[in-house]
Write a protein that binds this DNA or RNA. Sequence first.
DNA 1: CATTTCACCTGGTGGC
DNA 2: TGCCACCAGGTGAAAT
Length: 286
Amino acid sequence: MPELPEVETIARGVNVRVRGDRILEAWFGSHREPFKTSPVRQAKHLVERQIQSVHRIGKHIVMELGPQGRGSAAGEPEKNTASIAAQWIVHLGMTGRLLVTTPDTPVAKHTHARLTLESGQELRFVDPRRFGRLEFRDLNRDKKFTGPGAEPLTIAAADFAELFRTRKLAIKAALLNQTLLAGVGNIYADESLFRAGIRPRKRAGRLTKLELEELRKALRQILEHAIRLGGSSVSDYVDAEGAPGFFQLEHCVYQRTGEPCRKCGNPIRRIVVAGRSTHYCSQCQR
DNA sequence: CATTTCACCTGGTGGC
DNA sequence: TGCCACCAGGTGAAAT
């Protein structure tokens, strides 16, 4: 489901609601996937920590946590709120949702985790297909999470070009590789290639300097625009409050097979690249 | 090492 | 209504 704009939207929404809150209880409903860290370890280490902030790295939602402990006496404000001692890292896979709810909200099918917060809210992770992953890192022991690849919103032109210079695979496949750029998925790979006028099957290493710079700018502009519209709701994506996004209304090629190109009117084609549905205009993309 | 393919899951849709 | 094939925003292991 979620790519960079959707994950960014969710992370912002969750951050606004839970920043400064404390985790009182942690419940995990399954002992199979989706756990990168065992649910027992996660539950044990998540409780009695303050949530310092929630933000996005690539397609991951990272919750920065303070040290474990009961905190100060009642009424006392928490000290040392700047110290990050641990991280809870959420990957939503294809169908994952991270929702902030009230305790009385009915628990959806496929709810795998529930965190009870001091404010009375609950943070819930729901994921029917179980492609999502939950991970806990103790920063006294584990390495800080920095994401698999570069951030598409801030990468410099020269660094962007260097990522693809020596690659023989299709540019579409390269865009989906999270160890190169982190956060681009099937929708935004197709949309950015359309905007830059580049064929998805063109070999990454054969793009000219100019094409690479067009692609970097197209990608950044599309991602920023999609974030402003709250992401793309193709079938069931919703943000932290359960609200949909609206960027799907502005898709030029993604899931528009056979429909007329918004620029030239030619029917949009569907092919398979890197095992994924790929949509493009044979007229506008060379 | 770089690249490709496929398994991992559940659920929705459309054809017959 | 039922059955079946196919499709879906994503990885990551195994094969090539």
